[in-house]
Design a protein around this nucleic acid. Structure first.
Length: 424
RNA sequence: GUGGGCGUAGCUCAGUUGGCAGAGCGCUGGAUUGUGAUUCCGGAGGUCGUGGGUUCAAGCCCCAUCGUUCACCCCA
């Protein structure tokens, strides 16, 4: 055997066994989003590199070391998108969508980050993204969170916990950042290497440290809530009130930071402990300054991303969380002479009963093996045609999942009979 | 980018102090001519991830490399 070509590291095939779960998820999510008045937008997978550098922040890990960037034939620097928000803002500006007062959008597709793969973390992964533009009040924050909660309910996931925080206005965050730097600077001797590294790059992340030796220092650090500006504090309080009103439980986590630079005010994550270290299944927040930063009108915005692979692994092994593709009918063709008639009959069934899933037996083989395949297919009913049936112009019907015996029916009555059988 | 575990049939995995490559499941053929699931009998399928090295002899020992997995980091 010559050496076979395999998938690129960190990128996976989704095989036929797994795709019914993906389809269940995709269908459920898109139906729920549609139910809230969100409209789908589709953006290219490739964008100019500059788009991500300017939106995510050049010092974030994603931009500084995780992007799939390459030079196009004409010398342009392009990047496989690492997330969707930047593209969505770009598309909105490019097509004047932000003229619409309350613009509700969603999208789905692959994202690319060159990270070391591990459980729940791939180099090509898939997200649903939801973005809403033009609304600054906490009501839309509450709606978007309630909508995500409803999605979990529809999917049958009940172990997700909502973590909530407010980063305040950009000014307040800048101020808090300085307070934090001062605090950690005065305890520099107790910081680990990584934290020292973060001190000037992204000091808020020190609060996220999992190093047990840092816990005490982090616990005593000044809290973000004390640095919140009055308006943000008000916004945050109202959001909590509204979440209470719709019975959504949450944990205020003042150490919840999120890694992208564009966030302000409300940030949230839905977290599970069933996935190991990559427990965030959904995360998002406000990014009120981003549209303006790209030269657009001042446009408040909020959005979130959901990791499809992570959700799928929560849904795996649940038979109810799959789209059913089991055929209804398996058509057994006992004699090659009968094939033209069998094909004609099956096409007639497809014409008149378009919802029926019918598998034609192709490729010949013994009667016995055809029956084995019919059984294996999971079909409820086998249709049988061979030389005898050809002469009598009839088709055999054998139920495969019940003990009721085999019957037969004339060609002309076939679809009517099937309609009756499968109307139940 | 850093550190640990693991790579043997399509899948899940055995393989002893280095001595002929294995099982279960799956696939496939058959058990008196056209009837599935249970049962019984047969068959196909492997450069043991890849490349070097040690040895009379390597799936097993050594080195490298790729992949995978888990954690750090980061995030969906």
């Amino acid at each position: 055997m010559t050496s076979t070509i395999k998938t690129v590291r960190g990128m996976h095939d989704t095989l036929p066994d797994a795709s019914p779960t993906w389809q269940f998820l995709e269908q459920t999510v898109s139906q729920t989003l549609t139910g809230y008045g969100y409209q789908q937008i589709r953006m290219p997978v490739v964008e100019k590199t500059e788009l991500f550098e300017r939106s995510l922040g050049e010092t974030t890990d994603i931009v500084s070391k995780e992007m799939y960037t390459f030079t196009d034939k004409n010398g342009e620097m392009l990047t496989l998108r690492p997330e969707g928000t930047a593209s969505c803002v770009r598309a909105g500006l490019e097509h004047g969508l932000f003229q619409t007062p309350a613009l509700r959008l969603w999208y789905t597709g692959p994202m690319f980050r060159h990270e070391r793969p591990q459980k729940g973390r791939l180099r090509e992964f898939h997200q649903f993204g939801v973005e809403c533009y033009g609304l600054s009040g906490p009501d839309i924050d509450a709606e978007i969170i309630a909508m995500s909660a409803r999605i979990w309910k529809q999917l049958g996931l009940n172990s997700l916990e909502l973590h909530l925080n407010s980063l305040g206005s950009n000014e307040a965050r800048k101020h808090y950042r300085q307070v934090l730097v001062d605090y950690f600077q005065s305890h520099r001797d107790r910081l680990d290497d990584e934290s020292i590294n973060r001190l000037d790059k992204n000091p808020l992340r020190i609060l996220d440290s999992k190093n047990p030796e840092m816990q005490e220092l982090v616990r005593l650090a000044p809290s973000m809530s004390e640095s919140l500006d009055a308006e943000s504090a008000d916004h945050f309080a109202m959001l909590q009130q509204q979440l209470d009103a719709v019975n959504i439980r949450y944990t205020i986590n003042t150490r919840l930071v999120r890694g992208l630079d564009y966030y302000n005010r409300t940030v949230f994550e839905w977290i599970t402990n069933e996935l190991g270290a990559q427990g965030t299944v959904c995360g998002g927040g406000r990014y009120d300054g981003l549209v303006e930063k790209f030269g657009g009108p001042a446009t408040p915005a909020i959005g979130f991303g959901m990791g499809i692979e992570r959700l799928v692994s929560l849904l795996e092994n649940r038979p109810e969380a799959r789209i059913d593709h089991t055929p209804h009918i398996y058509f057994i063709v006992a004699s090659a002479n009968a094939m033209p008639t069998a094909l004609a009959l099956s096409e007639q069934i497809r014409d008149e009963l378009p919802k029926i899933r019918l598998v034609m037996h192709c490729g010949g083989g013994s009667f016995k093996s055809q029956f084995k395949k019919a059984d294996k297919s999971g079909a409820d009913l086998a249709l049988i045609i061979g030389d005898n049936e050809l002469v009598q112009q009839r088709v055999g019907l054998k139920p495969l999942r019940t003990d009721t015996g085999q019957t037969d029916v004339s060609w002309t009555d076939l679809t009517a009979t099937l309609r009756q059988i499968f109307s139940r």
